[in-house]
Nucleic acid binder design. Sequence first.
DNA 1: GCCGAAGGTGAGCGGGCGCTTAGCGCAGCC
DNA 2: GGCTGCGCTAAGCGCCCGCTCACCTTCGGC
Lengths: 233, 233
Amino acid sequence: MSTAEETAGGEAQAWGEVTPDAARRLLIAAVEAFAERGYHATTTRDIAGRAGMSPAALYIHYKTKEELLHRISRIGHEKALEILRTASRREGSPTERLADAVSSFVRWHAGGRTTARVVQYELDSLGPDARAEILGLRRQVDAEVRGIIEEGVRSGEFEVIDVHGTTLAVLSLCIDVARWFSLDGPRTPEEVGALYADLVLRMVGAADAGAAASAATADRVPAAPAAPEDPQT
Amino acid sequence: MSTAEETAGGEAQAWGEVTPDAARRLLIAAVEAFAERGYHATTTRDIAGRAGMSPAALYIHYKTKEELLHRISRIGHEKALEILRTASRREGSPTERLADAVSSFVRWHAGGRTTARVVQYELDSLGPDARAEILGLRRQVDAEVRGIIEEGVRSGEFEVIDVHGTTLAVLSLCIDVARWFSLDGPRTPEEVGALYADLVLRMVGAADAGAAASAATADRVPAAPAAPEDPQT
DNA sequence: GCCGAAGGTGAGCGGGCGCTTAGCGCAGCC
DNA sequence: GGCTGCGCTAAGCGCCCGCTCACCTTCGGC
């Protein structure tokens, strides 16, 4: 019916926890609209329209337009954190876990590009209180990645001079995927995840970069994809 | 007088080529406002106010608010391209030139964060024609970096499986600096430039990563900075 | 079969938006 | 020393924004 289910609803992100059905439809419509045009350029009429409702219906389920963004942002950050925690706490060497963390984090940013865009780039549109709450989640994300890198340095697998700076760079690399990735482009989320895991292992000086990176993406081919053209940078 | 000169005007970016003085003041005010709040959340009244003029004055020098963004975006992209071309065409090995390209490109994104934010993140706010023109400049930016990497692969200095993908990742890493970097943070633009040059050389498998990266940033200390805390990610 | 709550609508409010227009002050020229 | 034209302002137009309110439907419980 509406395009909401095709784009944002079709992504891996479930939004299952958002409970009255109408509230969920509105939220998915908002994710789509915010990702496409940005928070400030999106009107409440547009959101309601995408969800197949009248403009006033929005205010039955949400107090303001900003509350919608806040809810999206919190759920998205919690999902991102969960992905990294899963990779970080599994069994295996720091090399394997870092490769797993990067490849799954990248897959989430690429496959759920619509959601990830809103989550990563609309932080400044939140008010001070909501913003502060989200920044707390971001610090946990940072700590999760830094933990793996520190462990790799301790075990001697990694050779990193500036752990904080390298952590920042690794996350930066993953997050920016949401800016440039397109499902119409030549690469699948899995391919980008495998490539980026390999690049990150090189960044931290892990010995068996190629092998561990491809193992983290299971049975996918990590080598150069066949398609010749890039999406815009 | 206005805050425009302190923030955007104080950056490395000259804007000297924007000729009537009033037009330049308006443009600098717009860069500031767009970087702070985003294009759509910025009002023409705000821009004019920052430049110390009445709202109507804007329309003497620019046809629309979008023309301001277009001009900023084109000048910024041309500057970015010039930086990369300078590094790419100097003497030296691919390793040295890649380190130089990355460190100077990162310095521009960090030091000129206000401008870089607008240039890198407000592309979608342009109309189709302006957008297409800017995308042409972006392809040239991409080609410049890809050229250095290809040369390093040919000479045997680099070991890269997916040249297109790695080019994308290198640019991605540099560009995302504009999102998180803060002058109030623990790192100077020079330190981030040196760190990132080192990380990129590792990504392409260059042998003497550390040495060439620090050489590219002249006499700066490339090792871990003293400050303990990170800016938000 | 009636009742109240839950969830929805159509119309519209106050206000701020991008942009226009009529007119003012003043430097440069004869 | 009056005239012209340019840079700028004050005022405001038409529009659409986020959000509200009075009212309407639907439906489970009795």
